[in-house]
Every structure is written in C-alpha cells, then in structure tokens.
Computed example of a mutant assay.
Amino acid sequence: MRTQVVIIGSGPAGLLLGQLLVNAGIDNIILERTSKAHVLSRIRAGVLEEGTAAMLDEAGVGERMHREGLPHDGFDLAFDNRRHRVDLHGLTGGKRVFVYGQTEVTHDLMDGREAANAVSIYEAGNVQPHDFDGDHPFVTYEKDGKTHRIDCDFVAGCDGFHGVSRKSVPEAAIETFERVYPFGWLGIIADVPPVGEELIYANHPRGFALCSMRSTTRSRYYVQVGAEERVEDWSDERFWDEIRSRLPGRTAEAMVTGPSIEKSIAPLRSFVAEPMRFGRLFLAGDAAHIVPPTGAKGLNLAASDVRYLFDALREFYIEKSSAGLNDYSNRALARVWKAERFSWWMTSTLHRFPDQGTFGQRIQHAELDYLFQSRAALTMLAENYVGLPF
C-alpha cells in the first residue's frame, strides 16, 4: 500500500491527527496493535482545555461534546477543612474547560473516521517503522498470518509510552527525562451523582483526593495511595470511608456512595523524550511525554502536539514548505515543558510525600494559603489549568 502519512496508534492523538488530515485532503492510514473494542475500553482523563475542544470542533466531531459535556468555569481546592473556589472564567477573561471523558472523545473520533471512509487497521501485529532517517520511509505490520508494507512520506508515532515508535529511535539519538512519584492514584467510577457541581481537589494530612465526574449521574473519584498498594485490598466501603475522611465535613456528608463499576490504581510519573522528530518520524502524545494527572494535562498535551504536527504537514503538502516540520519538535517541547512544570507543581502542592516531614507540610499550607490571598498567584494557576495558548 501507499499513503502520505502512516499514524501508529488509534488513541485520541492518532485519531485527531487522522481526522484533521482527512478533512484537509491528506491521505493517511492508522495502525493499531489492539482491537477497536480494547481502545474504547480504556478509562482515561476527562477535562478538556478550550483549545482541545476547539480542535474537536475543527475536526468535525464536537457536536456530542457540546451536547453532553459539562462546561466548568472553575474548580475547588479543599484544605484546612474548607473549600476555596478557583474562578477560571473570571481569572482568564472568560475561558473555561469541558468535562467530557476521553473514552467519549475516542468514540466520536472513531465515528468521524468511519463516516469519512478513512482506513484504520486494528489488531495489526509487530508494527515497525523503517528507513525514517531517509526520504522513503515505510511501515510493516502483520495481520492474518501475512506481513504487509505501507510506503509513505511521514510516520506519526502516536502509540503511547510503551509503543514501538519511540523504541525504534536509536538510543544515542534521544534523551529522556523522568521523575517517578512514590505514590499512585486509586480511582473508582460509580453511578452516583457528583458531590459538587465542579471538580474538588483536596490536600489533607492523610493524602490527596479528587472528586470529579463524567456526567451528572456518574462520578469519578480518586485518593492518593502508596506505590505498593494493590487494588484488591480496597473494598468499595474502604474507599468511600477514606475519601470522605479527606474532604471537608459538609462535603463528606453530602457524598452519595454506591457500588463501583471500575476500580484501578495508576502510578504517577513525569517523563519527556527529546527531540520529538527523527527524520520523517514524529512523536506525539504519550509516546513523547507523560505528566501526572493532577493538572489534567495528558490528553490536552497530546492535542497540542497534534496541533503543531497537523499544521506542519498541511504546510508541507499545501504550501510546499518544510518550515513547520523542521520546527515541530522545538514548538511542541516548549509547551510540553510548561505543562510538565504545572503538573509537577500541582502534584507537589497537593500530595503528601514520604520524606516531606513537618517542614514540607507547612510549606504546602503556606503555598495554598498564599494562592487565595494573591490574584496574581491564582491567575497563574487558572491560566495553566485552562491551557496556555498554542
């Protein structure tokens, strides 16, 4: 086969890039090692920056997001047994975020791709990019007992942290930066109404907690747990008792509990790979970087990579210029590191660390107290949370 762009990975980054390319008349094929059902079963983030929402509109798949998503103009930070509201809308000149699950984003993008009759190949085994350091790259994969080859102009590696794209780069050509945090998030989904109309982030002596939602009838809750914890050791009753102990009294009393429909523990890490371009192979999303989920940046950072990469590819094919491709890595990484900084700051400010001690706890308290005495400090938080400009 022959196409212009091969996209490895059928997560939100790959699907969004593919849909934008299709709409621009640029041929592309998506290769995914797992099944479509498996991709749709993955439970991930649910807070979309305005820029991400605008890109879904640009891709022509934003209608359901606007109909079913929940626009939020702020969120609460809870500490000292009180809730303090961060007015995102007022602090950023009218910006807001959307609460809309990543699974729903993926579903909408898949539907859009099918409607456009664009090619996605699922359960493609042993996907390998080749010769991306030259002018004629190609990608091979196995399916139905046969090896297939796709010749292309460019390869977009959107296949996540454990995918083949970054692993295909010679070790000497890439530098990685990483911080692994000594805790994880135990999360559950339950069909109960959310405890608040907006998200609640909590700093508590027992550890961090987050009250989020997927809809007005489905809630997503998290508590910080030790890195050694096992999900099997957490009954629903134990989880509800723990999260209520970390929330202000009135909030805990108002919480509606019920059986979980999903429960998992996610480790936290910060990770960046540099550069994000290797000849005609471009990394995007989790293939190039990971952020702890505290700042709600993972999916949004993948979307910003797609913004830069799509603009560069469109410029190459429509305007016959390679300037955007040459600048892709620098532009993407400049925004990546700002998001890494913000996610690290949110994580450091709201979680309890094993070696923190009483001094570190007092510093956290002073940081949170200062936030709500300084409009400048709150504006910094709000500007980063709603998303820095592209």
Rank of each mutant, 00 (worst) to 15 (best):
Gly112Met: 07
Ile30Lys: 03
Gly11Leu: 06
Arg96Ala: 15
Arg314His: 14
Tyr385Val: 08
Thr147Pro: 02
Gly298Ser: 12
Arg375Pro: 01
Arg246Pro: 12
Ala366Leu: 14
Gln19Tyr: 01
Ala13Tyr: 04
Glu123Ile: 02
Glu315His: 05
Val139Ser: 00
Asp153Asn: 07
Glu198Thr: 12
Gly298Met: 08
Val5Ala: 00
Asn28Ala: 07
His365Lys: 12
Ser245Ala: 15
Leu301Asn: 13
Leu371Phe: 15
Pro129Glu: 05
Ser168Arg: 00
Asp151Thr: 06
Asp73Trp: 12
Lys167Met: 03
Glu142Pro: 00
Gly46Leu: 09
Trp337Arg: 15
Thr294Arg: 03
Ala227Arg: 13
Val291Thr: 14
Arg238Asp: 13
Asp241Ala: 15
Ala124Leu: 05
Phe278Val: 00
Ala59Gln: 08
His107Ser: 14
Glu123Gln: 13
Phe316Arg: 14
Val180Lys: 13
Leu88Arg: 09
Phe154Gln: 00
Arg179Lys: 15
Asp286Gly: 03
Val386Cys: 06
Ala284Gln: 08
Gly387Thr: 06
Gly207Trp: 05
Pro182Trp: 09
Thr358Leu: 11
Val39Asp: 00
Phe239Asn: 09
Tyr328Asn: 06
Ile363Val: 15
Ala254Glu: 13
Glu274Met: 13
Leu283Gly: 03
Tyr385Trp: 07
Leu378Pro: 10
Ala273Asp: 02
Phe316Asn: 07
Thr379Phe: 02
Tyr328Trp: 05
Lys338Pro: 04
Arg2Asn: 01
Gln102Asp: 10
Ala115Asp: 13
Pro267Thr: 11
Gly94Phe: 07
Gly69Gln: 09
Glu228Ile: 00
Arg331Asn: 12
Gln4Glu: 10
Asp327Val: 04
Ala54His: 11
Thr52Val: 11
Gly46Pro: 01
Leu368Lys: 14
Leu109Gln: 04
Phe271Arg: 07
Arg314Gln: 10
Thr251Tyr: 07
Gly25Asp: 07
Asp111Ile: 09
Phe342His: 13
Leu301Pro: 02
Ala376Val: 08
Ala13Asp: 05
Cys152Asp: 04
Gly279Trp: 04
Phe372Asn: 10
Pro248Glu: 09
Asn330Tyr: 05
Glu123Asp: 12
Pro389Asn: 11
Ala37Leu: 11
Ser120Cys: 09
Glu367Tyr: 10
Thr52His: 10
Asp111Tyr: 04
Leu48Met: 13
Gly160Leu: 05
Gly324Glu: 05
Glu58Val: 00
